[in-house]
Amino acid sequence: MTEADGFWRAFWEVGHEPGRQVVSLGVAVTLTAVSYDMLLSGRLTLFFDLSFMTLCLGLAALVRRRDFYMVALLPPVLMTAVFTFIALVARDAVAEVDDSLLQAVVSGVATHGIALFVGYALCLGWLGWRLHRESETGMAIELSHELGRRAG
């Protein structure tokens, strides 16, 4: 394997960031996309949807293997949290002003459901691809390290 092959393997297949940092990055980038979209248009547009889908793929590429579960659950939780926040702060951006909080959250998630579905599919697909690409030997070594840490 050449040095260039090692770079692409490390960049595309082997994430090294801890799950908590990846979750924090996801929240920060999502809230930034929401802020830009709300400032520019006063509501969430296709910009937010595309940002969310790209973010889901990026988070799946960054996370280390033992924190896959945390990132695998992140897209629906993140989308729901974002719409809960928006419903609390600017309800008219996602629903009617007189709608309840729950109704505004459901309305926002339903309106951007395609972005959630595609983002979630990209995230899970990338994590699955990363699992598939690792050899059985690599998984056996990682498992023995994990069992050795817990036993000692």
Rank of each mutant, 00 (worst) to 15 (best):
M1D: 07
T2V: 06
E3D: 14
A4E: 13
D5M: 01
F7T: 04
W8A: 10
F11A: 15
F11P: 12
G19A: 14
G19T: 11
Q21R: 10
L25Q: 05
T32N: 01
T32K: 01
T32Q: 02
V34A: 15
D37G: 07
R43L: 09
T45G: 11
T45N: 10
L46C: 11
L50A: 10
F52N: 11
M53T: 05
T54L: 13
L55T: 09
C56P: 10
G58K: 01
G58H: 05
A60H: 08
R64Q: 12
R65M: 04
F68L: 12
F68M: 08
P76R: 11
P76S: 08
M79F: 01
T80D: 04
V82S: 03
V82N: 03
T84H: 04
T84I: 02
T84F: 04
F85E: 02
V89A: 06
A90K: 07
R91P: 03
D92Q: 15
V94G: 03
A95W: 11
V97F: 06
D99F: 05
S100P: 05
Q103C: 02
A104G: 13
V105F: 08
V106Q: 13
V106I: 15
H112D: 15
G113K: 01
I114A: 08
I114Q: 07
L116V: 05
G119F: 14
G119T: 14
G119R: 13
Y120M: 15
A121L: 13
C123D: 08
W126I: 03
W126A: 14
L127A: 09
R130E: 13
L131A: 00
H132G: 05
E134P: 06
S135Q: 08
G138H: 06
A140R: 15
H145G: 14
E146M: 15
L147A: 15
